[in-house]
C-alpha cells in the first residue's frame, strides 16, 4: 500500500527515539500475549492429557493409574468412580444437542439473515440487529434455567414420559443462543453479494423472492456454511445451559434415534463441570481425565473453526 510507504517515510527519523521504542515494545507485548495464551492452552492440555493415557504416560515420565487411548475413544460407559472413561457416552450427548441446536438455529438464522439483508428497511435493521445481539448476551446459566423451569414442562405436556432433565430443552435453548451468530455471519456474506447480480436478476424479470432464493443465497453459500460450522462449534463448547438442563447421568444414546432427545445425558462440557464439583483429589485419575476431555473438546472446536475459515476463504465466490 502506498499509504504505508508514506507513513514509513515520515516516521523513519523518529522511530528509534526512546519513547517510540517503549510504546512499540508495549504494544508488541500485548499482541504477542494472545499467542502465548494459545500456546499455554495447548501445552497445558497436551501435557496433562498425556499423563492420562497409558501410551503417553511413560513419555512424560509419569507413573500412576492410566487409561488406554482405545478404551477412552471407543468406550461407551462413563463412570468416574468405577474407573470407566468411555468418552463416546459424552460425545453422543454433545452430538445430539449440537444437531438439535442446528435444527433450531439454522433455519431461523438463515431466514433472519435473508430478511435483514434483503427485505428489512434501514430503520428496521437498526432496531433488529442490536435486539438480536441481546439473545447472545443473556448468560448461558440463565438459558439453562429457562430450559429446566419453563421449556421442559411444555415438552412434558406433549411427551409425558420426558425426564426432568432432557436433551430436547437443552437443544432448544442452545439453538436460540446461537441464532445471532448464524444470522450475523450469513448476513455479512449476503451483503457482500454485489448489487449487479441482483439487478441482473430483476432485469431478467425475476421477483424479489426469486432473486433472494435463487441469486443471493447461492452466491453467499460459502459464507452461510461457514457460519453454520462456527455456530455449531459454539454449541459444542456451550457449558452452563447444558449443565443445568441436560442432566448429570452419563448415558450412551443412539444419535439417530429421535426418542433420545427425551432422555437426559451428560455432554462433554457438563461432565467437566461435574468432575470439578465432585471431590476430585488433586492429581488423581479423575483430575487428569478432565484435561483429556478438555483436549477432545478443544481439538473438536478448533478443527471446526479452521474448517469454517477454509470454507469461507476457499469457496468464496470472487466478483
Amino acid at each position: 500500500m502506498s499509504t504505508d510507504d508514506i507513513e514509513a517515510d515520515l516516521t523513519r527519523n523518529t522511530e528509534n527515539a526512546p519513547s517510540e521504542l517503549l510504546a512499540r515494545l508495549f504494544f508488541f507485548v500485548c499482541a504477542v500475549l494472545s499467542v502465548v495464551t494459545t500456546a499455554s492452552i495447548i501445552v497445558l492440555l497436551v501435557s496433562e492429557a498425556a499423563k492420562f493415557f497409558s501410551v503417553t504416560a511413560p513419555l512424560v515420565g509419569f507413573a500412576g493409574e492410566t487409561v488406554s487411548v482405545v478404551e477412552f475413544l471407543t468406550g461407551t460407559t462413563w463412570q468416574v468412580n468405577s474407573g470407566e472413561f468411555g468418552v463416546l457416552a459424552l460425545v453422543s450427548a454433545t452430538l445430539l444437542i449440537t444437531v438439535g441446536a442446528a435444527i433450531v438455529s439454522v433455519p431461523l438464522g438463515v431466514a433472519t439473515a435473508i430478511y435483514l439483508s434483503e427485505y428489512a428497511s434501514r430503520r428496521a435493521r437498526r432496531i433488529l440487529k442490536p435486539a438480536l445481539e441481546i439473545l447472545a448476551g443473556i448468560p448461558t446459566v440463565v438459558y439453562g434455567f429457562f430450559a429446566l423451569l419453563y421449556i421442559t414442562p411444555v415438552i412434558q405436556l406433549v411427551f409425558p414420559d420426558t425426564g426432568t432433565f432432557n436433551l430436547a430443552s437443552a437443544s432448544i435453548v442452545v439453538g436460540i443462543m446461537i441464532i445471532p451468530m448464524v444470522a450475523s455471519i450469513s448476513e455479512d456474506a449476503m451483503s457482500a453479494v454485489p448489487e449487479e447480480l441482483r439487478q441482473a436478476g430483476y432485469g431478467m424479470g425475476a421477483t424479489k423472492f426469486d432473486v433472494s432464493t435463487g441469486v443471493v443465497v447461492p452466491a453467499a453459500l460459502s459464507g452461510i456454511f461457514s457460519s453454520f460450522i462456527l455456530a455449531l462449534s459454539r454449541a459444542i463448547g456451550e457449558t452452563m445451559a447444558v449443565t443445568v438442563a441436560a442432566g448429570s447421568q452419563a448415558a450412551f444414546l443412539q444419535p439417530w434415534n429421535p426418542a433420545s432427545y427425551l432422555e437426559g445425558a451428560l455432554p462433554m462440557t457438563a461432565a467437566m463441570i461435574q468432575l470439578l464439583l465432585s471431590d476430585i483429589t488433586g492429581g488423581g485419575l479423575g483430575y487428569r481425565s478432565l484435561f483429556a476431555v478438555g483436549l477432545t473438546l478443544f481439538a473438536l472446536t478448533l478443527s471446526m473453526n479452521i474448517v469454517s475459515d477454509l470454507i469461507a476463504q476457499r469457496y468464496r465466490e470472487e466478483y
Binding site: L44, F291, F298, N305
Partner: peptide, 25 residues
Amino acid sequence: RLIDVNISNLAGVPSVVYGLLGLGV
C-alpha cells in the same frame, strides 16, 4: 497475520477450556 489467525481461533475456544487454563496455569 499469524496473530490475526490466532485471535480468531482463540475467540472460538469454549469457556470451560479457559477455565482449565486458569486452573492449570
